[in-house]
Design a protein around this nucleic acid. Structure first.
Lengths: 109, 109
DNA sequence: GATAGATATATAAGTCGCTTATATAGTGGT
DNA sequence: ACCACTATATAAGCGACTTATATATCTATC
């Protein structure tokens, strides 16, 4: 199995510190990386379905009783966290190569 | 335009410090990341064609007169280098988030 | 100088994930 | 009431990758 898609990793990353719902993940990416980087709703909900089927995430209870009933929250499974860690390490290694080849000027990560 | 594909970035990365030919890039990735991470020949040559059409790379002369005549060498264009730098920065930012969310234990990059 | 295995490039068929578009409906502010 | 925003979902189409196949050269060994 080669590496996961960039969107899959971004979703795992978003869920790493808190359970979130699809639309909330989109908004989080939008705030952090700008509106251009935000995935479409179509991509997001298809990705969530696929990731749940793959056992990377699972549905979680709403964090508040007064929450919007439409929201479907997701949490990382142990497998999902493990995959996220593995991909993080792979990306970190890639960034290290980029730095060695002078593609990154300042040490930012 | 969203982000480039992982394969595209790996190719740009491979060409960042030297001109290389398709098969050589595959072997370089295989040595650095293991046999599982190596792209298929089908993916490689299609990617090279696409990237040349997109102006990210261009064909370069053989580095040696005694070289294998079948090899087609490629070099980064200025646009290709610029894109590689931009994607490197994006990935570095992503790795920084992964580190902040405790997905990376040791500082490796 | 024949054979074998690695090297090297290329393309077709099929799969899969993302884009674009559309649909539906609840929520919150004025 | 109205309207924009929030929220999820699915279908059609496209593009990138996988798998498989084809072809040919190079290098080592016998």
């Amino acid at each position: 199995m080669p590496d996961m898609t960039p969107l899959t990793f971004r979703i795992l990353l978003a869920l790493a510190d808190a359970n979130r719902h699809g639309y909330g993940i989109i908004k989080e990416i939008e705030q952090r990386d700008g509106p251009e980087a935000a995935p479409s709703t179509g991509a997001m909900y298809l990705a969530l379905q696929r990731m749940e089927a793959d056992g990377l995430i699972e549905e979680a209870p709403s964090p508040s009783t007064a929450d919007d009933a439409r929201r479907r929250y997701y949490a990382l499974t142990p497998a999902g966290r493990s995959e996220a860690e593995a991909e993080s390490a792979r990306l970190a290694a890639l960034v290290a190569v980029a730095r060695a080849k002078k593609l990154l000027v300042a040490r930012k990560a």
